[in-house]
Amino acid sequence: MGYSLSYGRMNEILKELQQNYRVYAPRRWAGRGRYSDTDLIRYGEIAAVEEVVHDEKSDFSPKEIIFPITQPLFYFTEDEYRESRVDDQGLLIFARPCDINGIRRLDTMFLKNGDSEDSYYRRLRDKARFVLMECGTGWDTCFCVSMGSNRTSDYSLAVRFLPDHLLVEVRDEAFKRYFSQEREVEFTPEFVTSNPRTVRLPEIDSSGLLRKVYDLEMWKEYNSRCQSCGACTAACITCSCFTTSDLIYNENARVGERRRVWASCLHEDFTAMAGGLGFRATPGERLRFRTLHKVYDYKARFKEEQMCVGCGRCDDRCPEFISFATIINRLSDEVERLKKEASQEVAGQ
């Protein structure tokens, strides 16, 4: 069912929704961008639909709403500990198709991997409902079509922002009541069907080939280019890594907490162990690790789909202009070359 409504009406509905939901959308933080006089666009609660930045891609993904950057797990007192809590307010999140598809990857990690459920993820994820935002033509770093993540039907509402009104599709019965007064129109959202950027995915089909991929020269080039800042993984909708640590708020009161914060495999200490032991000492090796996770081994493990959804935020955020889309294509070319060489070797024997 579709509706046409003014911004004013939508804001009234928003007020109603906010009795049951915290409503999050990409918002503009003026002047808070990486560079001076640039804006930061990231998720935050909104008070009016006009605040939604729908015509630019956000710097950070909505994952921080259900997988908070810093998340307390337990609170400790003198000799008690208590699980952190969340309220029962729902979460209504304005998101794009790639992000909604990306969250399915997070679900796989947090709810399926190891046949166990992460209850901290579960308790926020269960509360989340999505408002699909149309992308229009998309942006120059997007490659969602190549990753098959340009479409989704996993949303409660879908919205098209027009200059003086909005079109809303209500997919989820639970939201129908909010729109009962509105004018009905035919509306279903449109998805992008092509991106300026396409990627070719590598087909690594044997461990022998994987070994050769490890040893490719191309990774070394990134030793001088990548500064291991981890901006790519922080921006990524599908990166799910974290580190748990404890802290004491106050030495005397002996109270503290156990919490987790996001981690990045691009950071030098991601694998650091006691005694100075660690793995993947160079930026190139770490970038290889990330690349293979995104476009090879996640799929090798969970079968259905690649981890990367092609949102392109890693390319947008990399301060060194390292394009992940380019890495994927380079890797695919190398894999094809290696396969050809191998078949020539066999033929030549």
């Binding site: 166990s116 580190t243 991601f270 162990m273 996640y298 493990r301």
Partner: peptide, 16 residues
């Protein structure tokens, strides 16, 4: 290196 021991944190992953 392990942080969660239950397949969530990603630190211990090697390939898949």
């Amino acid at each position: 290196r392990m942080s969660c021991a239950v397949g969530k944190c990603g630190h211990c992953k090697i390939n898949e």
